[in-house]
């Protein structure tokens, strides 16, 4: 809840690691450098830094990203 009484909904980028092919392309396009690729675990997005700009969604060749409400 913000001070004006509106509920602030934070949107962040979420990744489906079942779809992800570990190619690392998204890591290089994220403007705020908040994507990390681990060969075993896959992709993690630093939700604190993510600006939900959508660049990763547009780039990912397999459509593993989507912009969703932060849990």
């Amino acid at each position: 809840m913000c001070r004006a009484g509106f509920k602030v909904i934070l949107m962040v980028s979420k990744v489906d690691n079942e779809k992800c092919l570990r190619c690392g392309g998204c890591v290089s396009v994220c403007p705020v450098d908040c994507i990390l690729l681990d060969e075993a675990k896959g992709i993690t997005v630093d939700a604190k830094k993510c600006t939900s700009c959508g660049v990763c969604v547009d780039f990912c060749p397999v459509g593993a990203f989507s912009i969703k409400k932060e849990d």
């Binding site: 190619c23 690392g24 392309g25 290089s28 403007p31 450098d33 547009d58 397999v62």
Partner: peptide, 26 residues
């Protein structure tokens, strides 16, 4: 380190790919 290019950014060079400068390959 290939397209990720994290090491150069850690070192202090801006190697980020602008969205218009990178193709998606599949």
């Amino acid at each position: 380190d290939g397209v990720e290019s994290k090491i150069a950014r850690m070192a202090g060079l801006n190697t980020k790919n602008r969205a218009k400068d990178i193709d998606s390959g599949f």
